[in-house]
Nucleic acid binder design. Structure first.
Lengths: 232, 232
DNA sequence: CGCAGCCTTGACAAATGTCAACAAACGTGG
DNA sequence: CCACGTTTGTTGACATTTGTCAAGGCTGCG
């Protein structure tokens, strides 16, 4: 692959501390590809042949069962996904598809596992990454189990606001139908949920959200660091 | 702590490959305690001072928010819990309480982190453990998002049956109210769900479950290795 | 025995999903 | 740039699922 991406990838936490030679070896065996939107990169159940890294664009992780489908997460640059499957040499538990035109690095899982066995710093970095993934998954489970869809939406809005710098006006960067799926509801239900938040100081116009009463919204949403914080 | 537990703990995947000296050091700094039932061992939000290992009995991991509470998992001997928090030196995301009289090892998190930094084999073993935890969490999320409570119960029964060796008659080893919480529903709803499974070949009496029509139940439950398998 | 806790049941309410219709936004080809 | 068709979002009516409340039965234990 092209040298030009090296530094971007290298600066990822997972690769930052590892040995130079090992990193070079990983990169030499990898591919970079450009994908148009809506391309299914991997399908759940398949063997995990490659560790993926999104360089640009974005990728949706989703799962299906019995004709139903749900969006599990959205991956933004620059980060890896399906690390756990790669390490365990186990089948993917989620499918992935590009949401927009995206540039993706594919590193053969075999290589990752080989270097994982050789390079202790890499192994330690992977621990950090997996622990983070695990904790994120637990938070997401708590969100689902402990909150109604209206509460999930309210907290989602607060999280996005925080991400965007705290302004009272924010933009939805995702399609509403996908947001609905991510929040575990139907598009129709999401439409009504937005209306249901009006009494708590939220108005929506297209993908522009206006928080007219921050305190009211927070009083209703009751955000918790143990569910909503990206860090911790 | 007493030598007698060493071998049990040592045989855990996380500790199996690590250096003898390191293992000794870990054990020297640790405590073993007996707890009566219903004791809260840790509370979510607290700093993670100890890595815990259940030697006997069982422990419930649960979470609360806004007056609601949900059971997230049950830990059986012999296994660790809250490893991710220990490694990240981050607050617990879940609380834990004994379900019965239980014997628990407490290893100071500092020690675990120190040895994690020193012993590469330990670090690699932790990767395996965390990847497993992560994948289990993903499966649980899929179960919640993609299935109705009736479907979750049906698949739970099939999983328990498999665990118990495949017999058509199995025992519920947990209180129904806790099972309900684990499955993400109310006790009342669980009662009705059991009745709702009668047409699919399941009858319940107390904590004895009888699968009268295996095929019918499986046709309804549609178990999937990507959600229901313990391994993979 | 009598209390306490769990489980069950029924009646009802709230949350969420489904279906159908329509409006709005978007993209494509002329 | 417009016309067209496709997709997405919204809305209403309704069905299903799930939760809530209250009552009563069952069980285990002092």
């Amino acid at each position: 692959m092209l040298e030009s991406h090296y530094s971007d990838i290298r600066s990822l936490e997972v690769f930052a501390a590892m040995d130079d030679d090992q990193f070079e070896a990983l990169m030499r065996g990898s591919y970079v590809q450009n994908f148009p939107p809506q391309i299914e990169l991997i399908s759940e159940g398949e063997p995990s042949d490659f560790l993926h890294i999104v360089l640009s664009g974005s990728v949706d992780l989703f799962s299906s069962w019995n004709g139903r489908e749900t969006s599990m997460a959205t991956i933004h640059p620059i980060s890896t996904f399906i690390l756990a499957a790669t390490i365990k040499d186990a089948p993917y538990l989620m499918s992935a598809r590009t949401l927009e035109k995206s540039r993706v690095v594919l590193i053969p899982s075999q290589d990752v596992r080989a270097i994982f066995m050789r390079d202790a710093e890499f192994a330690r970095a992977i621990v950090g990454e997996l622990a983070q993934c695990y904790r994120t998954a637990i938070k997401s489970t708590k969100d689902l189990r402990l909150r109604t869809s209206l509460e999930r939406l309210a907290n989602y809005i607060l999280r996005q606001q925080k991400r965007a710098g705290g302004s009272a006006k924010i933009e939805l960067l995702t399609e509403k139908r996908r947001l609905a799926s991510y929040l575990g509801m139907t598009p129709e239900n999401l439409s009504r949920a937005f209306k249901g938040l009006v009494p708590y100081g939220v108005t929506v116009n297209g993908n522009r959200i206006h928080i007219t009463d921050q305190e009211d919204l927070e009083r209703f949403a009751k955000p918790s660091p143990l569910i909503d914080d990206y860090r911790t």
